[in-house]
Design a protein around this nucleic acid. Sequence first.
DNA 1: GTTCCAATAGTTTTT
DNA 2: CTATTGGAAC
Length: 654
Amino acid sequence: MTKTNSKDAVSEAKERVLLGLNPRQVEAATHVEGPLLILAGAGSGKTTVLTRRVAYIIASGWEPWSILAITFTNKAANELKTRIAALLGEQGEGVWAMTFHSFCARVLRAEFPGIGRSGRFSIADDSDQLKVMKACLKELNLSEKQYPPRGILHAISNAKDELMGPDEYAARASTFYETKVAQAYSLYKRKLLEMDALDFDDLLMETVLLFRGNPRILQKYQERFQHILVDEYQDTNRAQYELTKLLAASHRRIAVVGDDDQSIYTFRGADIRNILDFERDYPECKVVKLEQNYRSTQVILDGAFNVVKHNLERKDKRLWTSKKGGLPITVYAGQSAEDEARFVVSEIERLVGEGLPLSSCAILYRTHAQSRSFEEAFINAGVPYTVLAGFRFYERKHIRDAVSYLRLLAYPKDRLSLERVANEPPRGLGPAAIEKIVRYAQEQDVGLVDAMCSAESIKGLTRPQKKGALELGTALMEMRRAASSLPLGQLLHDTLEKTGYLEALRNEGTSESQSRLEDLSELMGSLRQYDEMENPLYSFLENCSLASDQDSYDEKKESCVMGTLHSAKGLEFEAVFLVGLEEGLLPHSRALLDERQLEEERRLMYVGMTRAKLRLYLTFAFARNGYLGPTRTRVSRFISEIPRELLEVRTWED
DNA sequence: GTTCCAATAGTTTTT
DNA sequence: CTATTGGAAC
């Protein structure tokens, strides 16, 4: 430690860091030695505590870079970074605040080369996974009807969450179906390896395996990170749990923050045992409960509590606030989805008229599909809105095409990107031709771009195919050479120009293609931020794989926010509209049969309600258009769990 | 083998 | 309502 501060200066710094915290929060921020479990209710100042804790650790003389703060979303990580910077200035620089997945990717890229594996793997997203799995099923002669690819992927994902490899899975398979899954798992893994790709679950699992199998590497990270902080601990799965356990094993300075009532990711393997086992794994751990809420009115908290208390599997606790009373919770019964949307939008306009900023209003729903009627109502009313992770920017076809072109420059074996891009624009390179190129590349042990450059010597390609492949290959080769000397935006532009992608889009001449071109220039412009980084191309691609759209959500923008209940976690608004509160939507129809899933739906409701600071609206429609005709609906059971005296009921007839 | 068009089936939540 | 699949024409 290089600090030469006197004792007084240190304690003064510590005091300043704790300014304005309540006694429980102080406990959580200052318990620096030894494990700590913080049970932080909604709106209890969790991020504040995390930030102050980091500051306190630094004020105690630790170096910033000895702190690792792990979150679930990039948004949460960025928020943490911003708040640390605001509190500490450059003193806080060097703290690692990132998601589980980016941490793992970073470790693997750094350590894989040392153990003879590629550190330049690409990261496979959902649609990549689906494609690979379909190819696997085809190869195994399994029909997609009997073996739905998504279902198989889900099973594999579960296995990986539990750190189970294909062999172990096969050994445990008891049903016929499971033996088939095991075969698919094994082949799927081989295929990913072949194209040097890892999926999201692999990132976690491979990191745990790396640490387990290489004690010296693990030791390096243990020594580097003397303090581990984990946010949203209730949402960790077994692999994530194991990872943090390994990292903290030598020094046991690990602090986790969680709230069992806000556990809404069990479908992704989140395991509530991780909170319970924490006290077992670290018997000396200190437990701090944060129950004072700084966000909502008492009425909103009472409403939310009365819903969530119906769950049997929960730790007993109850939030309280010094803000007594509050406006009643408004329940609106609409006659149709359109009527519901009309009400919500006109109510928002009324609130804005009273001086509430538009950006502090939010509409939350259970499924993405529900956004439609609200978007229409907003457009009709001329009110600006932002959809959280709706149709993700990065999931739009042309954006993915563009990214795939860049991926081909960076990842020589990225077969999926080639498949995306080879015939976009049409070059006569269909699946069969691609197969030949890939095989050639494998046989010659060269990258796909190099293979295309020697298209002349690939057997079985027709003349025009050779020409197409050669053109594409040389264009990409040229861009790859130029990659390090061009700004990233320019690189993308030139790549799309040379490969004829932009030209094809321009020639289309529809309004659709026009807006696509605009999207692409937006993308090119946004790439500027990467130019200062060490390796712009790789940094961008990494971000692209690991980032979602809500990460870039800008709360200052003057527009109403809407999104799924899941995407709303960690956010807060003056006015919240929980919409579509009907049996089958919330709780979702897929959850009705299973008590545990039903409890998760209830927690979703709880998370939604506790986003509201001042006003809470619960709305539903008596009839809703399904994909075939209008259907009558039933009001969500969760509404009836709220005491009548907290509610003010309105209908379309009022 | 590729391209294009029509029918068809499928819609939870996310890093 | 819309992404995807399967079939028929080039």
